[in-house]
Design a protein around this nucleic acid. Structure first.
Lengths: 220, 220
DNA sequence: CGGCATCCATTTTGATACTG
DNA sequence: CAGTATCAAAATGGATGCCG
């Protein structure tokens, strides 16, 4: 007989401790981070979690399913596969994960050179960097095409929306490879360099794109 | 020769992963939670973390010190002991921990009956529950006296401030024992019950206290 | 390929005792 | 009070193999 991963609890009534009872184990929050950009299949998760053990991924998914944070869904027509998605309780973790990302951007050590990177992570990163104060009365939509990853980002009078996929009629279309995209941050200097060196190419107003970028700052 | 806890890294450039590289291990975030209500001594931390291994506590403190999140300080005159405090980088984790607390309040399973509880945790809990929209044009200060724990909370036109200790001339003084205080939440019904049953006693306007409580809601 | 189980080495934790 | 030391129990990581 097997133990059902009895999820070692902190046994504290504090809401932080109870939250960590659910997703405080290694890999769990990163798994949720992945699902915040949309449902993903087992193998994709294994890829993006970069080195997680297959068994561990299975275990975590089952745990999160049992706790009502993740659910198994059937992908529609073309894929016709099963995938994992967040439940509303899982989606509700976005603010917390963005808060962690903000801290990481400001205070964590710079990523190691050999650190892995995937373009879709910037969906969250941009949300973490967005500064509403810089975006009052600003409306710009961007479509990023980073090798095979499509990312959109929309600034609409102080709010920010981003995700994977395409939007119709974006103001700016940004094309680049993963390496160049990884360098992209809100700094005007960086963006000018990327543009001038041709590492990223835009279709649309350069001025608009710079305005867009200026709303993304490390310090909130 | 000993290994210096090489802090197994996720090796991802994602800011969430880098943040978790710093405090993603078991107990670490709870340790930071403790320090968010002010510097604490080793033994107090051991008490409040309710069951943490002494060695583990030592290890975590050293790690966090090495990472610039925690620092050892000398407590002034009466205590004359050493204690641990957060650095600015550590303090900057408050929004993230409050975000986790908000999730825990809304979605985590109710605490087990045998779960441990300490009154000072409510400093964070109240911050997590505070709803600015309910507090426009409201100014109330409360002093809670819960056995040997003193907690203050101040609502000042949409902002919320709370911590351990006393404030001068509070509008309401609330006295109760730990058990009663643990039942306290923003629900008007609960508060009325606690008041009517005499489990908590207030000095000052009951109306004010109810207004104060009504700003604390589980759902943000 | 997607998903899970098994075996085994390495780490992390936990329980308990012990010291200045 | 403020930790260290020791040893046992889990959790994790990696390799491998199975099955639809």
């Amino acid at each position: 007989m097997k133990k059902n991963t009895p999820t070692k609890s902190y046994g504290q009534s504090c809401s932080v401790a109870r939250a960590l009872d659910v997703f405080g184990e290694r890999w769990t929050l990163l798994l949720i981070r992945e699902l915040l950009t949309g449902p993903k299949r087992y193998t994709d998760l294994k890829t993006y979690l970069a080195g997680i053990n297959a068994k561990l991924l299975s275990d975590r998914l089952k745990q999160l399913e049992a706790q009502g944070v993740v659910e198994k869904i059937d992908l529609p027509s073309p894929a016709n596969a099963t995938a994992y998605a967040l439940t509303p309780a899982g989606e509700a973790l976005e603010p917390a994960i963005i808060a962690l990302a903000k801290w990481g951007l400001q205070f964590a050590a710079a990523p190691a050179r050999k650190a892995r990177s995937f373009p879709h992570w910037s969906v969250l990163a941009m949300k973490a960097m967005f500064n509403p104060e810089r975006a009052t009365n600003l409306n710009i939509s961007c479509q990023f095409l980073v090798e095979s990853t499509e990312i959109y980002a929309v600034i609409k009078s102080g709010t920010f929306l981003s995700g994977l996929g395409r939007i119709p009629a974006p103001d700016v279309i940004v094309t680049c490879n993963e390496a160049a995209f990884a360098e992209f941050d809100g700094s005007v200097k960086t963006v000018r360099n990327l543009l001038d060196s041709g590492k990223i190419v835009i279709e649309g107003s350069r001025r608009d794109f710079l305005k867009f970028a200026s709303c993304l700052v490390l310090k909130s």
